[in-house]
Amino acid sequence: MTFFMIWIYQSTLPGGDIGMTPFLVGIVLLIVFGIEITLVLLFRRRIISLRNKLTSLIVAFLIYELTMWIMGGFGEIVLFESFKKPFEENIKGAFSFSSIFALTVILGLIILNDKLNKKNVTQHRV
Rank of each mutant, 00 (worst) to 15 (best):
T2K: 15
F3M: 09
M5L: 12
M5H: 10
M5P: 00
W7S: 04
W7M: 07
W7C: 04
I8F: 01
I8R: 09
Q10S: 07
Q10L: 07
T12S: 04
L13K: 05
L13P: 00
D17P: 05
I18Q: 10
G19C: 12
M20W: 11
M20T: 13
T21Y: 10
P22H: 08
L24I: 14
L24A: 13
I27H: 15
L29R: 02
L29S: 12
L30R: 09
L30G: 06
L30I: 13
L30F: 07
I31E: 03
V32P: 08
V32S: 11
V32E: 10
V32H: 11
F33I: 08
G34D: 13
I35H: 03
E36Q: 05
I37P: 01
I37C: 05
T38D: 07
T38H: 11
L39W: 00
L41M: 14
L41W: 05
L41E: 09
L42P: 06
R44V: 10
R45S: 07
R45W: 11
R45C: 06
I47W: 08
I48A: 08
S49T: 12
L50A: 08
R51M: 06
R51H: 06
R51Q: 11
N52Q: 15
K53Q: 14
K53A: 05
L54R: 00
L54E: 02
T55M: 14
L57K: 00
V59K: 02
A60Q: 01
L62T: 13
L62R: 13
E65M: 15
L66D: 04
L66V: 14
T67A: 03
T67F: 00
M68S: 05
M68K: 07
W69K: 02
W69T: 04
I70Y: 00
I70C: 00
M71R: 01
M71V: 13
M71D: 08
G72Q: 03
G73A: 01
F74R: 14
F74L: 15
G75L: 04
I77N: 07
V78F: 08
V78W: 05
L79W: 08
F80L: 10
S82W: 08
S82T: 09
K85W: 14
P86W: 00
F87D: 05
F87V: 15
E89M: 09
E89T: 14
N90G: 03
N90A: 01
K92P: 03
F95C: 04
S96W: 01
S98I: 13
S98V: 14
S99D: 09
S99V: 05
S99A: 15
S99R: 07
F101D: 03
F101H: 02
A102Q: 04
T104N: 00
T104L: 00
V105L: 08
V105T: 06
I106S: 08
I106H: 03
I106A: 11
I106L: 10
L107Y: 01
L109E: 10
I110K: 06
I110H: 07
I110T: 12
L112D: 06
D114G: 03
D114N: 07
K115R: 12
K115V: 03
K115S: 03
K115M: 08
L116D: 10
N117F: 11
N117A: 15
K118Y: 11
K118W: 10
K118P: 09
K118N: 15
V121R: 15
V121I: 15
V121A: 15
Q123A: 13
Q123V: 14
H124T: 04
R125T: 12
R125G: 10
